[in-house]
Computed example of a mutant assay.
Amino acid sequence: MSDDEYRVAVEDGIEFPVPADGERWAVGAVILNRDGAAFAQRRGPGRRLFPDCWDIVGGHVEPGESLLDTLAREVAEETGRHLRRVRRHLGTSTPLTAGSAPTTSPASRRTGPPVSTSSTT
Rank of each mutant, 00 (worst) to 15 (best):
R81H: 12
R73G: 06
I56T: 01
R109C: 06
P95V: 14
P106K: 09
A98K: 15
L83A: 04
S118P: 05
E78S: 04
H60Q: 10
A37V: 08
R85C: 12
A9L: 09
T94R: 13
E78L: 10
E23A: 15
G46P: 05
D35P: 13
A98W: 15
D35R: 12
G91R: 01
T120R: 14
V18A: 05
D55S: 13
Y6H: 12
P17R: 05
A29D: 03
V18F: 05
D55Q: 10
R88N: 01
C53R: 11
V115H: 13
R81L: 12
T92N: 10
S105N: 02
L96Q: 00
F39I: 11
E74M: 07
F50S: 06
G58A: 07
D55C: 07
P63E: 00
T121H: 14
E11T: 01
D69C: 13
I56E: 01
R7L: 12
P113T: 14
P17K: 08
E74A: 05
F50N: 09
T120H: 12
R88T: 02
V10M: 05
V18Y: 04
V8Q: 05
H82L: 13
V10I: 11
P51M: 07
G36V: 11
A38S: 09
G44P: 08
R24H: 09
G64R: 12
H89C: 03
R88M: 04
A72F: 09
G13E: 02
T103Y: 15
F16W: 01
R85K: 15
E74P: 01
T117P: 02
S105G: 05
V75Q: 03
R84E: 14
R24G: 00
T104H: 14
E74R: 04
P102W: 10
T103E: 11
I31H: 01
T121G: 14
R73I: 04
G44C: 06
G64F: 13
V27E: 03
G44R: 05
P63V: 09
D35E: 14
G58R: 02
L90I: 05
G13D: 02
M1V: 01
G46M: 07
D55H: 10
P95R: 15
V18C: 06
Q41R: 06
Y6Q: 08
T79F: 14
E78T: 02
E62T: 09
F50K: 11
T70G: 11
R42N: 02
G28W: 00
M1N: 03
E23K: 11
D12G: 10
V27H: 03
